[in-house]
Design a protein around this nucleic acid. Structure first.
Length: 505
DNA sequence: AAACAGTGCGCG
DNA sequence: AAAGCGCGCACTGTTT
């Protein structure tokens, strides 16, 4: 794995400097809150554990293991539930233990399970997040490390703590943990993220015309369209939640190389788990029944799905997805992998070599994942090393999560900062990398003054961030002495100029 | 006591 | 033919 072009070497070097600055500045923590949350969570866990101990499962557990019994041991619990108490095993792990992850245990119909899973979640939050964060906080500040030399894909990684996996999807955990991350006194905490960055970057590789149309037209929505196919709905019947499962239960998994058997299972389970209902109020299960689909299907690899099952239906949707909707994308995946097999390596759009043994899905995903992150890295670097110091701004970038930037911004700089960041992350970035052939967009979330990471609310960028257009350089003819001297005096405009000359050609 | 493998789970 | 990708961290149970 090597940077291959001069530009990619520079990206790594300057990126390292920028991330070192981010690490140095650090993010402010509400230590008082953290300590209180730890106490509260410890009490909650203790309360729940006392309840667990009264359960018949625990009685049986104690009988089997005596003093060796450990409430945190999934291996022990599996043996108690599935060997001794006769519940049906959800399957085995690689080493032959009973599986005991959340979705496996959830299939066991016993009141013990719900509390056990809740305790497990809280214990993880307490040890990894609350206690972990407190232990790493120094004088009210946390300094996560961001590395560029770790991953196979040329993404970054983060450690001590890992800033990139703090809970957000689970509302209870997000509330508990993210409240500890706060803005510096008097400031806003700001998060800027690229919308659908990996999908956009993938499109720059495969250039599927249907996909380019989806990405270039705000009124089009592929996740909604696929949700319509999957759950056999009219457009108006697709709720936000149903769209969510179309996106995260099918579209993204398919892009990354998943297949209909796993998607069908997840989509089917989502119906009950989230009590999915159409926009007009019909339970989704009922709606599917009215279309003749009442069963999930066997989901056995190698066996043909049975007509009339959900499995059969999702299989058909998958075929339609790749053969009719995105055939060029499908062809690119084949060609890209074939090329890799011939050469043993490939080059990313951002100038990095990936080599070594790769499976098909890996060879297809690495270039996209890496290049997408490099959009973020270039933007962050530009802001940290050039734009913010040049404008003598006090705003600081304090973290980064693959396709988003977390910043700590004084109120008087907020609009300037957002305008600048948007300009760098979209216009300027697209002008230096001409392989970006789709419009990149960002979204902003801003906390109230002195607020925390959970308090951030969507912030309307439409009014603010029209980058100021400089007319000056348009007067100079490229190549003339005036043009050259302006170029030298304004190196920051170099990219804009390159883009300008490219466009007028 | 330290190191290692296996499992599970948090994020994009 | 093969069927999601990438990470870091904590915990259990075993080996060194």
């Amino acid at each position: 794995m090597l940077p291959y072009t001069e530009q990619s070497v520079q990206l790594m070097h300057e990126g390292s400097l920028a991330l070192a600055q981010v690490e140095h500045d650090g993010i402010r923590m509400d230590v008082g809150y953290l300590k209180g949350a730890i106490k509260k969570t410890e009490r909650r866990i203790a309360r729940l554990e006392r309840r667990l101990e009264k359960s018949e499962v625990c009685v049986e557990w104690k009988k089997a293991y005596g003093s060796k019994m450990k409430l945190g041991s999934d291996e022990q619990l599996g043996k108690v539930l599935f060997d001794r108490m006769g519940f049906k095993s959800p399957g085995k792990t690689e080493s032959g233990q009973h599986k005991a992850d959340e979705s496996s245990l959830a299939k066991v119909d016993h009141p013990f399970i719900q509390d056990y899973l809740k305790v497990k979640k809280l214990k993880k939050a307490l040890s990894t997040n609350l206690n972990g964060l407190l232990a790493l906080t120094v004088d009210e500040y946390l300094h996560p490390t961001f590395s560029l030399h770790v991953t196979k894909t040329y993404r970054s990684s983060s450690e001590a703590p890992n800033f990139q996996n703090q809970p957000v999807r689970n509302e209870m955990l997000a509330e508990l943990i993210r409240r500890a991350f706060v803005a510096r006194p008097g400031n806003h905490l700001v998060e800027l993220d690229y919308s659908g960055l990996e999908v956009n970057i993938a499109a720059c590789y495969h250039k599927d015309p249907t996909m380019l149309e989806y990405l270039g037209d705000e009124t089009k929505d592929m996740h909604r369209d696929c949700a319509m196919d999957l759950y056999m709905l009219e457009q108006e019947e697709v709720t936000k939640q149903i769209r969510y499962y179309g996106k995260n239960g099918f579209v993204f998994p398919e892009f990354y190389g998943d297949w209909y058997i796993d998607c069908a299972r997840a989509l089917w389970e989502a119906i009950d788990k989230s009590h999915l209902v159409t926009a007009s109020g019909t339970p989704l299960r009922e709606h599917l029944a009215s279309k003749g689909i009442r069963r999930l299907g066997a989901l056995v690899p190698g066996e043909k799905p049975v007509k009339g099952t959900f499995e059969y239906h999702v299989c058909k949707v998958e075929r339609h997805f790749w053969e009719d909707r995105f055939p060029v994308y499908a062809q690119w995946r084949k060609d890209w992998f074939t090329q890799y097999q011939k050469k043993g390596w490939f080059l990313t759009k951002t100038g990095f070599i990936c080599q070594g043994y790769m499976k098909k899905n890996e060879a297809i995903n690495y270039p996209v994942q890496g290049s997408a992150f490099h959009c973020l890295l270039w933007s962050l670097t530009r802001l940290v090393l050039q734009e913010l110091p040049k404008k003598k701004m006090k705003a600081l970038i304090v973290g980064q999560i693959h396709d988003s930037i977390v910043a700590d911004v004084p109120p008087e700089e907020l609009d300037d900062f957002l305008a600048l960041a948007q300009h760098v992350m979209t216009t300027l970035l697209m002008s230096i990398w001409d392989w970006i052939i789709v419009p990149l967009k960002i979204e902003a979330d801003v906390s109230p003054i002195g607020g925390s990471w959970v308090d951030k609310k969507p912030y309307d960028l439409s009014g603010i961030a029209k980058p100021r257009v400089r007319k000056k350089w348009k007067r100079y003819e490229p190549g003339t002495p005036e043009w050259m001297s302006y170029w030298k005096a304004h190196p920051e405009d170099q990219e804009e100029m390159v883009n300008y000359t490219r466009r007028i050609k």
